[in-house]
Amino acid sequence: MLKFLLSRLLTFLPTFFGVTLISFAFIRALPGDPIIVMAGERGITEERHAELVRQFGFDRPIWEQYLDYLWGVMQGDLGQSFVTKKPVWDEFFALFPATLELSVCAMAFAVLLGLPAGVIAAVNRGKFFDRALMSTALVGYSMPIFWWALLLIIVVSGWLQWTPVSGRISLMFFFPQPTGFMLIDSLISGEKGAFASAVQHLILPTVVLGTIPLAVIARQTRSAMLEVLSEDYIRTARAKGLGPFGINGVHALRNALIPVVTVIGLSVGTLLAGAILTETIFSWPGIGKWMVDSIFRRDYPAVQGGLLLIAVIVMIVNLTVDVVYGFINPRIRKG
C-alpha cells in the first residue's frame, strides 16, 4: 500500500510542475497590466508605475520571475494577492469551504440519484423508464450549464419563488462561521430559520453543478449494470433464491460500482471546472468566483496559487479514488 502511494505521488510530480508553469504562463499571456488594473479609475503616474514594476520584479527576465515563484512554492509560499495583500494560501482556504460544500452537495446529488436511476434503467432495459431516463440523461449531459442555470433561476426563483437567486444565506442572518460550511455553521448558530435558509440557497447551485455528473453517473451505472447482469454469478445469485434487491442491489451493483467509481473520480475535475461558472452565476462566494475575479484583476499570485491548489486537490481526489478502487475490487487489493 505504502509503495503504491509513493509510486503514485511520484507520478504527480510532473503534473505539479507542469501546472506551475502553465498557470504562470497563462495569466501573463493575457493582455493587461496588473499595476494599471490595481490603480483603477484614479490612474497612476509614470514614476509610480516604474517603481511598482521594480517592486513586483516585473522588470526582471521572465524565467527568473518563474524560478522565483517556483522557489516560493517549494517552501509553501504562494505569494500575496496583489489586491488584498493577504497570502494567497489564506484567501484560498477562507473561500474553499464554500466550494467544497457546494461540490460535495452536487456530488451527493449526482450519486444518490444517478446510481439508483442507472440500476433501475438497467433492470428495466428497453422499457419506458429506461428510455425516458436515458434521453433525459443525454439532454442533461449536453445542456450548457449557463443556460440551464438561467432556466432554473427564471422558473424556480422567478415564477415559483421557491428559492433565492444568489448567495449562501439570507442577509438577515449573521453569525460566526467556525467551520466555513454554511450548513454546519447555521445549525451551530442556533438561529431560527438559518439552516433552512442555507439549504434553500444551496438547492439551485447544487442541481446546476450536479446535473452533468448525474447524467454521466446514471449512464455509466446503467451500462456497467447491463454488463454485470449477464454474468454467470448473477445466475448463481438467482439460483440461491435471492430477490430483486439481493440480485440487483447487492450482487450486481457491487460489481458495477467498480467502473462507476472511476467515473465518479473523473467527474471531480469536471465538477471543479463547473463550479467556476456556477459560483459566478449564483454569486456563490467560493474558489470559482474568486478565480474569475482574480483573472479579471490580473492578480497573478492569486490565479497561479488558485490553479495550483485546485490541481493538487484534483490529484488528491484521484489518488483517493484509486485507493477506494482497490477496496471495492478485491482482485487488485492484493500486493
Binding site: 454474468e231 454467470d232 454469478y233 445466475r235 448463481t236 445469485a237 439460483a239 440461491k240 433464491g241 435471492l242 450482487h251 457491487r254 460489481n255 467498480i258 471495492i328 475490487n329 478485491p330 482482485r331
Partner: peptide, 18 residues
C-alpha cells in the same frame, strides 16, 4: 436454493468476484 439447487459449468465465473 433451498429444496432445489443448481450448480453450473463454469465454477470460476459462477462465483461473485466481489
Amino acid at each position: 436454493g433451498r429444496d432445489m439447487a443448481m450448480i453450473f459449468q463454469e465454477p470460476m465465473s459462477s462465483l461473485n468476484p466481489c
